[in-house]
Amino acid sequence: MITAIAIMALGAVVLGAALGYASIKFKVEGDPLVEKIEAILPQTQCGQCGYPGCRPYAEAINKGEADINLCPPGGAEGVQRLADLLGREVKPLDAEEKPKAIAFIDEQTCIGCTLCIQACPVDAIVGAAKQMHTIVPELCTGCELCVPPCPVECISMEPIGENLDNWKWKYPVIELKKVA
């Protein structure tokens, strides 16, 4: 009887020590799920979800504080992928989906106030005080954060149309022909 208890106790101590060691040795820094959520988010850093950037939104989703349908640049497809990852229900996007656009500065009107440069989360605007500013189109994520600070309203969002660089082969569809 005593022996059995001693054996069980010994086992408990050994296993407990092993588990304790493993939890220290194999500790994962940060939450891997947050990384996965963040990888799905489009990284526009636009704040349209109500969080200051994609990372905070990913953290809020992970904690269950935020819904998965708050990211307009991610679109319905982003919601779908988040739902797949998290096993949550797909919801319609909580905003209207806009075509992808990038900002454009009307250089005639720009007064060189640098407010848009400060607002740009990805440093996609070049210029200096009292010098004309311009947007580097390859770096612009279309977050629209530069639009409200402009005092002379010289920034507009230009939709990116289809061109030979971004053209895609379409999904094959069967053409239905009208019979009689």
Binding site: P42, Q43, G53, P121, D123, L139
Partner: peptide, 13 residues
């Protein structure tokens, strides 16, 4: 593009 934007955002922050 997203990875690049993220890197630039982190750098700016």
């Amino acid at each position: 593009a997203a990875d690049q934007a993220k890197a630039r955002f982190e750098w700016k922050t």
